[in-house]
């Protein structure tokens, strides 16, 4: 059992959470800003590992469905690409321990 936990992937960890997903993302990116960005702070800052660079399109992608609602990406994106608001009432992560 302990073994299992130590090797859990980040997606598996997030799958432990209670989350109700809205159809529309509460996180929006300005691709023209992302295109110029070299550091990609969002990828490193997000504790859910939800940001990635799409190999197909070359655009930044964020898997808003796993969002932990910490807001770190909004703070870390000093170039102002991340527009982030709380999910609408009823939606998003519902912490059962917190």
């Amino acid at each position: 059992m302990g073994e299992k936990i130590e090797t859990m992937k980040i997606e598996e960890k997030i799958a432990c959470n209670a989350i109700k997903n809205d159809k529309e993302s509460h996180i929006k990116l300005k691709q023209d800003v992302c295109k110029e960005c070299r550091e990609r702070f969002c990828i490193y800052a997000c504790p859910g590992h939800l940001y990635s660079l799409s190999e197909e399109t070359g655009e930044m992608v964020v898997e808003y469905a796993g969002c932990l609602e910490c807001g770190t990406c909004k703070i870390a994106c000093i170039y102002g690409s991340v527009s982030w608001e709380y999910p609408r009432g009823e939606y998003g992560v519902q912490y059962r321990y917190g």
């Binding site: 936990i5 432990c16 504790p47 807001g71 917190g98």
Partner: peptide, 14 residues
Amino acid sequence: WIRGGELKEYAAHI
């Protein structure tokens, strides 16, 4: 400390 435990939640906050 957590050996044998089961992960129940993964949370983040600033």
